[in-house]
Amino acid sequence: MKNKVLFFLIVLYAVSGMYALSPENEYDYLYTDLMNFYTYGYKKTFDERIMKSNGKINFAQGSLTVTGNKTDIAIQGNGFFKVLDSEGNDYYTRCGNILWNTDFKLVIKCADTIYYLPAEPLPAAFTSIEIKNDGYIVCEYFESEKIKNKKTIGRIILYDISNNDVEYYDGYVIKAKTKLTENTQSAIHNKCLELSNVRLDDILIRMLFLIEKMDDSLIKGKKTKKFLIEKLLDIDYRKSILRETFSADGQMPLLHVSAMQDYLSCLKRDYE
């Protein structure tokens, strides 16, 4: 029964219209979607309306997971919040697991790059910090040995972004090529994180169809990649390896992340 359903879906994808991209370029976009399955706030390129990727960002909402961490935020609705690189350039993200560095500056770590929130550094004697649902960042600190005080050190503001605004997107942050408009309609939820909006089955089935369309000069190890995708689509395997379970702090268990990333790295188009 499973094989019949899989065959039906492949046929459906095959007749879903002409390519917006070449098969190899679309495969590469889908591979990026797949590798960002665990990236908080990631927006895929797969479009359910046409059942394939056209290389544009799909801004559909991802599911929210409660973490309880006072510096975690998730966005419900449209909008990205601003962060800065080390040179002060503006970027925009929905990756809401906010930390602080040794200089008491609020940061998000995106792969190997650190981005800074446009906020004051935390007082050295701070005792707690919380990001409110209205975006205000409030900390408590000792003003003296016995006097505790509260201070607002910044506010997270949401901005609307469309594909026409995007200069590039690396899965974590967007570099905008135009001036953005503030979004006042969407909501910030504290103590939560937004999961990626990637649906594995959609991506994998489309990749399986694309593999059939590419010859060996465009994709290496076709038989192996087909085997791996079929393995990932197996229900029992997904239940044991790809289940969306989280620890108390909202982080995906490291074992599952490692298993997933190692497995998927073999699906890169030029990987033998």
Rank of each mutant, 00 (worst) to 15 (best):
M1K: 15
M1W: 15
K4C: 15
L6K: 13
V15F: 00
S16N: 02
M18K: 15
M18L: 15
M18R: 12
M18E: 13
Y19I: 11
Y19G: 12
Y19L: 11
E24A: 08
N25F: 10
E26Q: 04
E26S: 03
E26N: 02
E26P: 01
Y27K: 01
D28Q: 07
Y29D: 02
T32S: 06
D33T: 00
L34I: 01
N36K: 04
Y38Q: 03
Y38H: 08
Y40F: 07
Y42I: 01
K43E: 04
K43M: 05
F46D: 02
R49I: 08
M51G: 01
M51Y: 05
K52L: 00
N54W: 00
A60G: 12
S63F: 10
L64F: 06
L64M: 09
T67H: 04
G68A: 04
I75T: 01
Q76L: 05
N78S: 11
F81M: 02
L84M: 11
D85S: 14
S86E: 12
G88H: 07
N89G: 12
D90V: 13
Y91D: 11
I98C: 02
I98K: 00
N101I: 09
T102W: 11
C110E: 03
A111C: 07
Y116F: 10
Y116T: 02
L117F: 02
P118H: 05
A119P: 07
A119L: 12
P121I: 10
P121Q: 10
L122K: 13
A124G: 14
A124C: 14
A124M: 15
T127M: 13
E130A: 13
I131N: 01
K132W: 06
N133T: 08
I137W: 03
I137F: 03
V138W: 03
S144I: 07
K146P: 05
N149K: 14
K150E: 09
I153M: 06
I153Y: 03
I153N: 04
R155P: 03
I156R: 00
S162L: 14
Y168M: 14
D170L: 07
G171P: 02
V173T: 02
A176N: 06
A176F: 11
L180A: 03
E182M: 09
E182H: 06
Q185R: 12
A187D: 08
I188K: 05
H189N: 14
H189P: 06
N190T: 11
N190E: 07
N190P: 05
K191F: 07
E194C: 05
S196E: 05
D201W: 11
R206L: 01
R206H: 02
M207I: 09
M207E: 06
F209K: 06
F209T: 03
F209P: 00
F209A: 03
L210P: 00
E212R: 13
M214G: 07
M214C: 09
D216I: 09
D216K: 15
S217I: 10
I219V: 13
I219S: 05
K220N: 06
G221T: 07
K223W: 12
F227P: 03
E230Y: 10
I235W: 09
I235T: 15
I235K: 15
D236I: 13
Y237A: 10
S240E: 14
I241P: 12
F246G: 12
F246L: 15
S247A: 15
A248Y: 11
D249P: 08
G250K: 10
M252Y: 11
H256V: 10
D262Y: 10
S265G: 04
S265F: 07
L267P: 00
L267F: 01
K268R: 07
Y271C: 10
E272N: 11
